[in-house]
């Protein structure tokens, strides 16, 4: 009996001892991901933004977000949209916006996308009468 109890106690003790460094590491990783990462809504399509040395961050959230995929599909926010619908939809968003002065449109396009695929989008934005437009980039690593 006594031997059994001793054995069980030893076994339990050993398990816990071995696990503590693991917990330390896991806790460190947890804190790292909590602090360094940011949780944000993922885009409906994968977009690799062009790299740029520009460091300007957006001061406010964009009022309208247009995504242009490499396959030439367009999204307004989460919703797939045809090219000719962009201008009327932007107009509707602008009319509904409480602060029209700071209304701005962000265009997220892939860095490998050619300009002639992108310019129709800008033509649509121009047609809707909006002028504050920004292209999304990521900070270049070198």
């Amino acid at each position: 009996m006594n031997i059994d109890q001793k054995f069980i106690a030893q076994r339990d003790a050993q398990t816990d001892d071995g696990v503590i460094p693991l917990i330390n590491v896991v806790f460190l990783m947890l804190i790292f991901f909590m602090v360094a990462g940011q949780i944000q809504k993922s885009d409906p399509i994968k977009i690799t933004p062009p790299e740029s040395i520009n460091e300007t961050r957006a001061q406010t959230e964009p009022n309208a977000l247009i995504l242009v995929g490499l396959d030439g599909r367009f999204y307004l926010g989460d919703e797939a949209i045809t090219l000719t619908d962009i201008a009327p939809r932007l107009n509707a968003l602008f009319e509904a916006a409480p602060d029209k002065q700071s209304f701005w449109v962000q265009v997220k396009a892939d860095g490998d996308l050619s300009i002639d695929q992108l310019s129709p989008v800008f033509t649509q934005i121009r047609q809707s009468g909006l002028t504050k437009v920004s292209v999304a980039t990521q900070l270049s690593r070198n």
Binding site: G37, P49, R126, L130, V133, A136, T137, Q138, L139
Partner: peptide
């Protein structure tokens, strides 16, 4: 869930 891509913006006023 976390993403590390820091998006920047280049203004292209029309």
């Amino acid at each position: 869930t976390s993403s590390f891509v820091a998006w920047r913006v280049v203004d292209t006023p029309l």
